[in-house]
């Protein structure tokens, strides 16, 4: 499959990238590692007039400690982040999710910012233009129906970032810069809950930094997949605890992750969350494994991740 034609511009800094955004009247896509974007463009799921490359922006490539936060530039590759000593020592859940992302070759290409802002996926959405035209366009393609759940009024596409789950479990925040200025918010606030347009980012906004509170944590990331490499999660669970507080995040099912705050750090608290998440999860038949099975696995993986997190503490 060949790429359609588009203009390519490389931005040296954020201001220039936003200027390009305005010059092309918003008909652009920002490019970081490209591991999510390029397949989407090849499938004609995204047809930008121009692609604005952010890779040359030096400021987005750094990892630094600032005032109680670990600040990660959005263009830091997954591989570099995985090999960062602070991540290994302080944030085991993040280390595990980075390690579980795709394969090392793609970890070297993909960036943390791009990984967080990857589009939601569906077995009936990530298909060629010919396939989708024959099948009929769904909500997410601008159509009037969901092709997976007849008569549904929402889009059930799945958010498949491994790392957003562990980052949210670590109470990470993000910094966004756009035509209207700069803002900072907790990571979980970027999700709209709408599979058609899964993020709350404003037009032209660029994710520039991810900030994690610099506190040693315990945690784990559990991922359900058929193959042990490359596969997206059919279900992902990130667990992280700091002292008597903790969080469990469940993703890979539906357009936005489920986030649970733990009131206490013990087996029964985790069990409560597992039960709650099991009843909250609404998988549909849009991946290679059945929704029933994926639902069943929600509590299994939460208990596994929590066991690992609790054991680490001993």
């Amino acid at each position: 499959m060949i790429l359609p034609k588009f203009e390519y511009k490389s931005a040296e800094n954020i201001a220039k990238a936003i200027a390009f955004y305005e010059r092309y009247n918003g008909k652009i896509r920002y490019l970081a590692g490209g591991t999510d974007l390029i397949p989407l463009v090849k499938l004609r799921l995204s047809t930008p007039m121009a692609i604005i490359d952010l890779k040359e922006i030096e400021g987005l490539k750094a990892i630094s400690h600032q005032g109680g936060w670990l600040v990660i530039g959005a263009n830091v590759t997954l591989f570099e982040l995985k090999n960062n000593n602070t991540v290994k020592e302080y944030f085991p859940a993040l280390y595990e999710s980075l390690d579980a992302t795709s394969c090392e070759t793609l970890q070297m290409r993909g960036t943390i910012g791009g990984n967080i802002l990857q589009n939601t996926r569906c077995l009936l959405y990530n298909q060629s233009l010919e396939w989708r035209t024959a099948r009929g366009f769904c909500f997410k393609m601008g159509g009037e129906t969901c092709n997976v759940v007849p008569n549904a009024r929402a889009c059930f596409s799945n958010y498949c970032s491994d790392n957003a789950l562990s980052l949210m479990a670590l109470s990470a925040s993000v910094k966004l810069v756009g035509p209207r200025g700069e803002r900072k918010m907790p990571l979980e606030k970027i999700f709209s809950g709408d599979g058609r347009n899964p993020f709350t980012l404003m037009p032209g906004e660029i994710l520039t930094e991810i900030l994690i509170p610099m506190k040693r944590s315990k945690g784990a990331y559990e991922k359900l997949r058929v193959r042990d490499s490359i596969d997206y999660p059919l279900l992902g669970v990130g667990v992280s605890t700091k002292g008597n507080a903790g969080r469990v995040c469940v993703g890979g099912i539906g357009p936005s992750p489920l986030v649970y705050n733990l009131k206490d750090i013990n087996e029964s608290a985790f069990k409560d969350v597992a039960e709650k998440a099991y009843s909250d999860a609404r998988p549909v038949s849009n991946t290679t494994l059945s929704p029933d099975y994926r639902k069943k696995m929600v509590s299994v993986l939460i208990q596994r991740a929590s066991k690992k997190a609790l054991q680490e503490g001993k």
Partner: peptide
């Protein structure tokens, strides 16, 4: 009549690690 996994991502060919 629609093949749902005509690509190599969703058609699971075993990888080296498997």
């Amino acid at each position: 009549g629609f093949l749902l996994n005509p690509d190599l991502l969703e058609y699971k060919v075993p990888l080296a690690c498997d």
